Deep mutational scan, measured.
Amino acid sequence: GKELVLALYDYQEKSPREVTMKKGDILTLLNSTNKDWWKVEVNDRQGFVPAAYVKKL
């Protein structure tokens, strides 16, 4: 099944490779191999968020 993460904080994208999320959002985790930036999918968009801003559910 898909792995989900919870947004712990708001995050505003700073580049086209990133995505914006709001605290409390549930996101689909696509890739967590990089310890600093995790790739997630939110609202049919894929991009990176800081790993410290999310936690695995």
Rank of each mutant, 00 (worst) to 15 (best):
V49Y: 01
P50N: 02
V19L: 15
A51F: 03
G24I: 01
K35T: 11
E13C: 13
K14Y: 05
W37H: 03
V54M: 06
E18C: 07
K23V: 07
W38Y: 08
V40D: 00
N43Y: 13
L6T: 07
T20G: 08
L6P: 00
I26P: 01
V5G: 13
T20A: 07
D36Q: 12
Y11F: 08
V49A: 03
Q12Y: 14
L8A: 04
K56T: 08
D10H: 06
Q46H: 08
L30D: 01
S32Q: 09
T33S: 14
I26H: 05
Y53M: 12
K55F: 11
V42C: 11
L29A: 02
I26Q: 05
K23Q: 09
V40Y: 01
K56I: 14
L27P: 01
V49R: 01
L29W: 02
A51G: 04
T33V: 10
V5N: 01
V40N: 00
K22I: 08
L4I: 09
E41M: 12
A51L: 02
I26L: 09
Y9F: 13
L8S: 03
A7G: 03
D25S: 08
A51H: 03
V54F: 06
E18W: 04
D25R: 03
G47E: 02
G24R: 02
Y11N: 01
G47F: 08
W38M: 04
W38K: 01
G47K: 02
W38S: 03
L4R: 10
L30P: 00
N43D: 14
I26M: 07
A52T: 11
E3L: 12
R17E: 13
D36V: 15
S15D: 11
K39A: 08
K2F: 13
Y11L: 01
N31G: 07
K39D: 04
K56R: 14
E13G: 15
R45Y: 05
N34Y: 09
K23T: 06
K39H: 10
D10V: 02
W38V: 06
W38R: 02
K55T: 14
Y11G: 00
K55Q: 14
T28Q: 11
K22M: 09
Y11Q: 00
R17P: 06
A7K: 01
I26K: 05
D36T: 15
I26R: 05
K55W: 10
F48M: 08
G1K: 14
L4F: 15
N43E: 13
V42R: 15
N43W: 11
V19E: 00
V5L: 12
K2S: 10
I26E: 03
K14R: 13
K14D: 06
E3F: 11
N34Q: 10
K55D: 06
K56Y: 10
G24W: 06
N43F: 14
L29M: 04
V42A: 14
Q46C: 10
K39S: 08
M21T: 03
V19S: 02
K55C: 15
K2E: 09
K23L: 05
D44P: 07
Q46A: 11
A52P: 08
A7Y: 01
T33C: 13
P16T: 10
A7V: 10
N43H: 14
Y9V: 11
T33R: 11
Q12K: 14
K39L: 15
V49I: 09
R45L: 07
E13P: 14
N43Q: 13
G24P: 00
Q12D: 14
D36G: 10
G1E: 12
D10K: 03
P50V: 02
E3C: 15
P16K: 10
T20F: 05
D36R: 14
L27S: 02
G1P: 14
G47M: 05
K22T: 09
E41S: 10
A52C: 15
E3G: 10
K14M: 11
V40S: 00
T28E: 11
R45V: 08
P50T: 02
A52K: 15
G1V: 14
Y11D: 00
E18S: 07
I26G: 01
K22A: 08
E3A: 12
R45M: 07
Q12T: 14
L30V: 11
A51W: 02
A52W: 10
L4Y: 15
N31Q: 10
Y9P: 00
K2P: 14
T20C: 06
S15A: 09
P16E: 12
R17C: 14
K39E: 14
E3Q: 14
V5C: 13
A52Y: 09
P50Y: 03
L57K: 04
L57R: 04
L4A: 06
E18L: 05
N31I: 08
K55I: 15
V40G: 00
Y11C: 02
Q12M: 13
D10M: 04
K23C: 08
S32Y: 08
P50C: 04
V49F: 01
E41C: 13
D25A: 08
D36N: 14
K23D: 02
Y53W: 07
V49C: 03
V54S: 01
W37S: 02
T28N: 08
K35P: 14
N34P: 05
F48E: 04
P16F: 09
N34D: 15
K39C: 13
T20S: 15
N31D: 15
L6N: 02
A7R: 01
L29I: 05
V19K: 02
L30I: 15
G1M: 13
N34H: 12
P16V: 09
V19D: 00
L57W: 09
L29F: 03
F48V: 07
G47A: 04
V19R: 02
T33E: 14
N43P: 12
V40P: 00
D25C: 07
E3S: 12
V49K: 00
I26C: 06
R17M: 13
Y53T: 07
Y53A: 11
G1N: 13
L8E: 04
Y11H: 04
R45D: 04
A51D: 02
V5W: 08
E18V: 05
D25M: 15
Q46R: 11
K14E: 08
V49M: 02
K35Q: 11
R45K: 11
V42E: 04
D10Y: 05
Q46P: 06
M21S: 00
V19H: 03
E18P: 05
Y53L: 12
L6H: 04
A51P: 05
